[in-house]
């Protein structure tokens, strides 16, 4: 951003940070999806090539990357519902702040349930 906008609508509160997070997670998921379509396409070419690329998804380092991806999807998905409610529910705007924290709570609880299980899968595969 080269120039400062003359008047800004977003002043560092929940409304701005939820938007920043929604944007960053959306971009991250988008680039993962591009790669994911390409790697899956190997099933049409050669089973061994597909399996060897999948083996990299099972490494510990990429395993942690997958935690990040799932966290991004959880936030983006539930904050997407929040955006839809702000747009279509009459009281959505009034509760947008509260809904943000509900989004964070739901995403966090689901992530806390997923992360240990995923790490168990990853580490037992790499035992």
């Amino acid at each position: 951003m080269a120039k400062l906008p003359a008047g800004t609508l977003y002043r560092g509160k929940v409304g701005m940070w939820s938007w920043v997070l929604h944007r960053i997670t959306g971009v991250a998921i988008f680039f993962f999806l591009l790669v994911h379509i390409l790697d899956t396409s190997l099933v049409r070419v050669d089973p061994e090539a597909y399996n060897s690329v999948m083996a990299t998804y099972k490494t510990v380092i990429i395993g942690f990357g997958e935690l990040g991806l799932v966290a991004a999807i959880l936030f983006h998905a539930f904050n997407g519902v929040r955006i839809i409610l702000i747009d279509f529910w009459r009281k959505g705007f009034k509760y947008q702040n509260l809904m943000f924290w509900i989004v964070v709570a739901i995403a966090f609880i689901l992530f806390a349930g997923f992360a240990p299980r995923h790490l168990m899968h990853v580490f037992s595969y790499n035992h």
């Binding site: 099933v43 089973p47 597909y50 399996n51 999948m54 998804y57 099972k58 395993g63 997958e66 799932v70 999807i73 998905a77 997407g80 519902v81 839809i84 997923f114 299980r117 995923h118 168990m120 899968h121 990853v122 037992s124 595969y125």
Partner: peptide, 26 residues
């Protein structure tokens, strides 16, 4: 977005949660 919640969560449950990444192969 609303439809993708169902599709993506179902995808993650079957592919990542159920048996884990370790089980994904051809």
């Amino acid at each position: 977005g609303a439809v993708l919640i169902v599709l993506i969560f179902g995808h993650l449950i079957v592919n990542l949660w159920d048996k884990g990444v370790g089980a994904i192969d051809f």
